[in-house]
Design a protein around this nucleic acid. Structure first.
Length: 452
RNA sequence: GGCGGCGUAGCCAAGUGGUUAAGGCGGGGGUCUGCAAAACCCCUAUGCAGCGGUUCAAAUCCGCUCGCCGCCUCCA
């Protein structure tokens, strides 16, 4: 299996340290609901994780919550609710959204504020080793003390343009970044050897990943936007802390979501939330839309493409319902498993895996029409769908009385059809369509589903 | 100023040196069906932003040009 690493800039043969893959994916800062960009990132890594498991690796998947930072503090002040309450609310929303998208739960979800002792230990060690210094109640990382700084970004510290901030003058060097932020009036704070304060953004991931996964992770993932400064800083902190190089064997970054300049070009930052996306499209369609494009490429949000994915998913679902003849010639689907694996083994090339799946779909339907036994092939399709994370479940959000009504109308229409009263039969069909129900006459009778 | 990405059919999107340029959606024409729907079959890029170059051979490598985008500040 080959995986592209941002660090080396090329595909590398994947060989975890042992059978359990140590995988860490940067999580969200919980001050708002998740948007489509989060769906893109977490679905991408969900597929990667599922595929690793399919290939018989155990995966220990750790994803953090950043539950204290400036945005959280600001938002809680704006809304006049305690930061803790805000954080709990959005952690809850996070799980609602992730579950709705059929994203498997991580093994562990550590939170920054629950790892303060480890964070303090890491910072203290960095200070003892001369990689960090205290200034005005805060602690900063001394970037120039780490010769490898910039290796992930493929730049040297000297090439970087420095943006001045309010803290710049406290630092020895403008590139230095905060490990510990001194408390400001009215802000939540934790005790530390350097005075009250809270952890800086990058340090939590170092502390949590090392604590839960060890000094060297197999895979560390996140959005492309995290490469710099977040992951660059993580490398610096972590390798200085442990003295072990590498901190991460394979750095994976998914392409960033681009908003189509056209349709949803609302004011900047007004992203489509996951909840909004799920109102328009099924979780499967959202996943297919995301997976149809290679994970490292940028993805442009497109409602047209999402709807196309919806139609494609419906065709997959349909193939699972196709009738086969038991005892007849068995449709051989093993070729498609091979093609699927070949595609995914090459840096999780899901678009090509999708091509294989859709060809399998066609084979199943064709085999069904030719009276073959397609049961095994359908089982293969189901299994591959599971590896990708498709449910292929139809959304039936109807209650019993509605369902009874539908069945009653269908039998009324079939009575008309039997009597060749086509006009009346068509009227009943139109009535159903107005209720949002589409029907299909099959050799085995009439079936219905929610119309698009 | 530095680093990086992208430009492939109406739309989305694979393919990174060599058979007929994946797959999805859409469109056209058929088959089946009372009609639909679904499914299946056929067709839909002599062409890969443009111009040069390397090569027996390039969408794929090199150079230049044009266009779009990301990062260097919080962001998955």
């Amino acid at each position: 299996m080959k995986i592209f690493s941002t660090l080396s800039g090329q595909k590398e043969e994947f060989a975890p340290q042992d059978n359990e893959v140590k995988m860490y994916v940067c999580g969200v800062t919980v001050y708002d609901v998740c948007h489509f960009g989060h769906a893109l990132s977490y679905i991408s890594f969900d597929v990667i994780r599922r595929y690793l498991e399919f290939r018989d690796y155990k995966v220990k998947y750790v994803q953090n919550f950043t539950d204290i930072d400036d945005k959280i503090i600001n938002r809680s002040n704006e809304r006049n609710i305690p930061w803790k309450e805000l954080v709990e609310k959005y952690i809850g929303e996070f799980f609602v959204d992730m579950d709705a998208l059929n994203i498997k739960r991580a093994t562990l979800y550590p939170r920054a504020t629950e790892e303060i002792p480890m964070i303090i230990q890491v910072i203290q060690t960095l200070m003892d080793k001369g990689h960090a210094y205290k200034a005005d109640g805060s602690v900063y990382f001394r970037v120039k003390s780490f010769p490898g700084y910039g290796k992930l970004t493929h730049q040297t510290a000297d090439d970087m343009r420095v943006t001045e901030t309010s803290e710049t003058e406290k630092k020895e060097d403008p590139l230095d970044f905060a490990l510990w932020k001194a408390v400001k009036p009215g802000e939540p704070a934790w005790l530390s050897p350097w005075g009250d304060g809270r952890p800086g953004w990058h340090i939590e991931c170092t502390a949590m990943s090392i604590k839960h996964l060890g000094k060297t992770l197999d895979i560390h993932g996140g959005g492309q936007d995290l490469v710099f400064p977040h992951h660059e800083n993580e490398i610096a902190q972590s390798e200085c802390f442990t003295g072990v190089d590498p901190f991460v064997r394979i750095w994976m970054h998914n392409g960033f979501l681009q908003l189509g300049a056209d349709k949803m070009s609302k004011s900047l930052g007004n992203l489509v939330t996951i909840k909004q996306a799920l109102e328009r499209n099924s979780a499967d369609a959202i996943r297919l839309f995301i997976i149809s494009s290679y994970y490292r490429m940028p993805l442009r949000y497109s409602e047209e493409a999402l709807d196309a994915a919806e139609t494609g998913i419906e065709r997959m679902r349909q193939a699972l319902k196709a009738e086969g003849k038991t005892g007849a010639e068995v449709l051989d689907a093993e070729l498609y498993i091979t093609r699927f694996i070949e595609a995914m083994d090459d840096d999780f090339s899901a678009p090509q895996a999708m091509a294989a799946m859709f060809e399998l779909v066609r084979e199943i339907n064709r085999g069904s029409e030719r009276g073959m036994d397609v049961g095994r092939a359908q089982q293969v399709l189901k299994e591959l769908a599971g590896v990708i994370g498709f449910t292929l479940q139809e959304a039936r959000k109807l209650d019993h009385s509605q369902e009874e009504k539908i069945l009653e109308l269908i039998s009324r229409r079939n009575a008309h059809r039997k009597a060749k009263e086509w006009k009346q039969a068509d009227e009943v069909r139109d009535q159903l369509l107005k209720m949002g129900i589409a029907i299909e006459d099959t050799p085995k009778g009439t079936t219905w589903k929610i119309a698009k």
